[in-house]
Structure formats: C-alpha cells, structure tokens
Amino acid sequence: MIKVTNLSKSFDDLAVLKEISFEVNKGEIVVIIGPSGTGKSTLLRCLNYLEAPTSGSVEIGEICVDAKKHNNKQITQLRKQSSFVFQNYSLFANKTAIENVAESLITVWKTTRNEAQETAKNILIKVGLEDKLNFYPSQLSGGQQQRVGIARAMAAKGEVILFDEPTSALDPEWVEEVLAVMKQLALEKQTMIVVTHEMQFAKEVADRVIFMEGGYIVEQGTPEQIFEHPQHKRTQAFVKRALKR
C-alpha cells in the first residue's frame, strides 16, 4: 500500500537520505529506530512532502508522486493519504480539542459541521478525552495534547499515520497514556510508521522494525530478528546500547 522507491534527500551539500526503498502493507505497524541525526524525521517528512525529496518516488494508496516531476495538486492529494503526529504536538492554538480534531473533516473533506463534531467527539472519547472536548491546547497537559494530536491524525482519514517521536517531548508521567492509545490503534490494525526511542514499544507492537543509520536502511526484520539476533555490527551496537537504557 505504501511504496517508497530510491528516495533521496539533500540539504545543500548534506546528503541525509540515500536511495531509500521500502514497502509497507495495509495494517502493518512499522517502527523506525536509529541514532540521532540519521534522517528518521527527514524520511517521515518526505513521505508527505513536508520536506520535498531530492529524487525518488513516494506512493501511498492510489497516489504516486515523483520528486522530479510533481505539482501542488498531487502533493495535496498525497497528503490526504496520510496524517502526522508531531513530537511537539503542533496543535492549533486557536482551536479547542474538538475543533482541532474536526478541522480536517470540515476544511478538507467538506463534512457538515455537525457531522464533523460528532465524529471528532467519538474519536476524542476513544482516546480518553471525553471531559476535555472544549479545552484549548494551552489548558491541557502534554499527554492530553499529544492524545488530541493523535485524535486529529485519526480523523484525517489517511491510509497511514506517521508518528515522529510522539513521546519524546513528554514528561515521563505522560508517556504511558500516549503509548496506550497507540497500542489500541495497533490492535485495530491501523497502518502506522513510528519513529521512536521507546524500544519496549517497538518490541511489543511492531510487525517490523527498520534500523536506519547514516541515511541508509541498514537492516530490517521482525522485532525478534532486530532485537535478539541483529545481523549487522552497527545494528548490534545500537540495539545493545538502546536496550540497556
């Protein structure tokens, strides 16, 4: 359902992604791990063109966009195929929780306001925020804000939800409630690509783990393969350090 082919990205002279290719099936949960500065965020951001790749193509659902020849309309189409959960939540500060979640339905999918509100409310109930519907982001804890962030991504009707370190800006006390929501999504077979440093989550939830370093995919496999029997030296070294933490 998702097919990334020879994706490369450079910032001026700095090559961050080098000919990355991989596929993700419908309902699959893929976790991307790797050292800092390796290009994990850049890869996710290239998948929906928040960052324009230098070359290669991204295909999600019916839409395929080639870095060398694309137009704005294609990019908007591609973006509708996915949604994004940001490290710093990036909620709309002038909108309440329910308005944040309903926004894509109203603006992008042209749902009626009432219907959008109803859907948004149900999603917020699902992430455990039924008592915060009319709160502004500034009135919510980090964990609550990130759950609104996930709810907003769920509402957007994308095929896949992209998570960029959704728990790393959170105080430790809020991490579990956010991971719990993500685990729930995984049980429902929501397709997800998750960049995270939460190795326990990767072990428990991932169908596949991708280890990235230096702009390449070094190794990928089941959590067991990657965490128990890594093939490459660099994977071994990273996993050993990561699991000790």
């Binding site: 500060a93 991504a153 994308g158």
Partner: peptide
C-alpha cells in the same frame, strides 16, 4: 509557530486554507 502550518498541510489543507483558518486568526 511554523509547526502549525505544517500540521495543517499534514492533514491535507492547502496553504491558503491554513492561513485563513489557523494562522491569520
């Protein structure tokens, strides 16, 4: 905060919609 514009784009809004509904207010 620029990330709010990115959040708009990530759910499929156009830049103009983002400006009108989120940034300008």
């Amino acid at each position: 905060d620029k990330s709010q514009m990115e959040a708009c784009l990530s759910i499929g809004m156009t830049r103009l919609q983002a400006m009108k509904r989120i940034i300008l207010p």
